[in-house]
Design a protein around this nucleic acid. Structure first.
Length: 417
RNA sequence: CGGAGAGUAGUGUAACGGCAGCACGAGUCCUUUGGGAGGAUUUAGUCCGGGUUCAAAUCCCGGCUCUCCGACCA
């Protein structure tokens, strides 16, 4: 993509009203635009990142056998009444339709997925089953904050699994944990992200969260260095000493963290109100057991930036960077222009995702500053200086070192690095 | 939802109750091209509604919005 064609421009000024680093960089670099508190547009660069995260999650979900669907956002009142959440879940956005019908925008989808799956599952032979979707959720948060870390409309992957026994549910629950670890590894935050025991909220007694430790977080956790797991502070009753839920050792140090994902064993909590039963091998009707598993995609994107940035901007992990490389042209001479256009075309032809700073009347300094701000992993510079050596200059976003590579060796160099 | 703070041009900021100014950005033209360059020129603003006053960005009342703290929370 040509940077001159990007309709969103970068901004030199820090937004006055944003405290969190991820929000500052995303706004300055033109990844997102704020419409209102907790409501954001994803601009071309931001959308590319979001789509890459989506693809990673989609792959991992499918690899554990989950089938992707897309449920509606408009959910009738009766469904919420069946589970008792019409009045209990106060983050619901409620709307009135014609004929006095009422709806809530989807804040979570048990009320849709349970009756849906019930229509098609009746025998033990139909189970286990897992379905997921990636869709915008609406929650009327009392307070939106920290840019895309806590919003009122946000993209979420929600997975629901259905089982015949607790044993089967446990097994799948473990499988999801492994898949989640793979996801966090791919997006570059696994080393800071810990399985955390937490209260279950409206869903169950306990749940597990995935907490990414960073000072930008709004949660507090105790971390066990031996077990590599954490305990949410909300679970520590007044005065009690927090203990690791695995090895039982006493924990003392508190860390701020971001809850990037949450998983629950719902068991029969939502299958019961919908009377969702299956006929087991022994001919008896039994309640289906259920689990649910969420990841907030935008929040994950924000968490990655909280971990991966420096004073100049974002440092995207390769896996979710909006582009693989940033080709920068310095200078306006005919030779430089022709050569950089040629390199741009050959990179594209070789299948590389490249953003090309072909803007004119922009000083080299400004191009470099924008490049650091946007945070593409690899920077390739073409200028009079590099052309004298028949080369381009290559620099990684997270390193200081400059490499000069002969132009006719460039594609091979990129393959091997 | 409770508490605190703030709303002036696209962004960031100034102006005692008395001419709304500056910087950056954006547009046009020229020069410049290895870490936010220089010149010329143009552009654009007091959140909304009421009140006090000869006169309101400024004082008062009401509303709206944003940010932060708390509460809440898949």
């Amino acid at each position: 993509m040509r940077q001159s064609q990007l309709f969103v421009k970068t901004s030199r000024e820090f937004p006055k009203d944003e405290a969190s680093k991820s929000a500052q960089f995303l706004l300055r670099a033109g990844f997102i635009d704020k419409l209102a508190a907790g409501i954001y547009t994803y601009l071309p660069l931001g959308l590319r990142v979001l789509e890459k995260i989506e693809r990673i999650i989609d792959n991992e979900m499918k690899s554990i056998g989950a089938q992707r669907i897309l449920m509606p956002s408009l959910i009738p009142k009766v469904n919420w009444q069946t589970t008792g959440r019409w009045n209990k879940f106060d983050a619901l956005y409620k709307l009135k339709g014609k004929n006095k019908l009422e709806y809530a925008l989807g804040a979570t989808h048990e009320e849709v997925v349970v009756p849906l799956v019930k229509k098609h599952v009746s025998s033990w032979r139909d189970l286990p089953l897992a379905v997921f979707q990636i869709q915008n959720k609406f929650r009327n948060e009392f307070r939106a904050k920290s840019g895309i870390l806590r919003t009122r409309e946000f993209l979420m992957k929600d997975l629901y699994s259905f089982h015949r026994s607790e044993e089967e549910l446990d097994k799948f629950y473990q499988k999801v944990q492994k898949a989640y670890n793979k996801i966090f590894k791919k997006v570059g935050i696994l080393s800071k992200t810990y399985l955390t025991l937490a209260p279950g909220g409206t869903f169950s007694k306990y749940s597990h969260e995935y907490q990414t430790i960073t000072s930008a977080g709004e949660d507090l956790v105790y971390f066990c260095p031996k077990c590599k797991v954490a305990l949410n502070k909300e679970l520590v009753v007044n005065g009690a000493k927090p203990k690791c839920w695995r090895c039982k050792r006493k924990l003392s140090e508190q860390y701020k963290s971001i809850e990037v994902a949450n998983i629950f064993k719902l068991k029969e909590k939502y299958t019961k109100p919908f009377d969702f039963r299956f006929t087991d091998k022994d001919g008896k009707k039994k309640l289906v057991l259920m689990g649910c598993y969420g990841i907030g995609l935008g929040r994950l994107m924000g968490a990655v930036i909280e971990i991966w940035h420096d004073d100049f901007g974002i440092i995207w992990p390769k896996s979710i960077a909006p582009f693989e490389m940033h080709l920068i042209r310095i200078g306006e001479s005919k030779g430089v222009k022709e050569k950089s256009e040629e390199i741009y075309r050959s990179l594209q032809k070789a299948g590389h995702e490249v953003i090309y700073d072909d803007r004119i009347q922009i000083t080299p300094g400004e191009k470099f500053m924008d490049c650091d701000l946007i945070g593409i992993p690899l920077r390739i510079v073409v200028s009079e200086k590099t052309l004298k050596k028949n080369s381009v200059e290559i620099k990684k976003r997270n390193q200081k070192k400059l490499n000069f590579v002969k132009i006719n060796h460039l594609l091979r160099y990129l393959e091997n690095n």
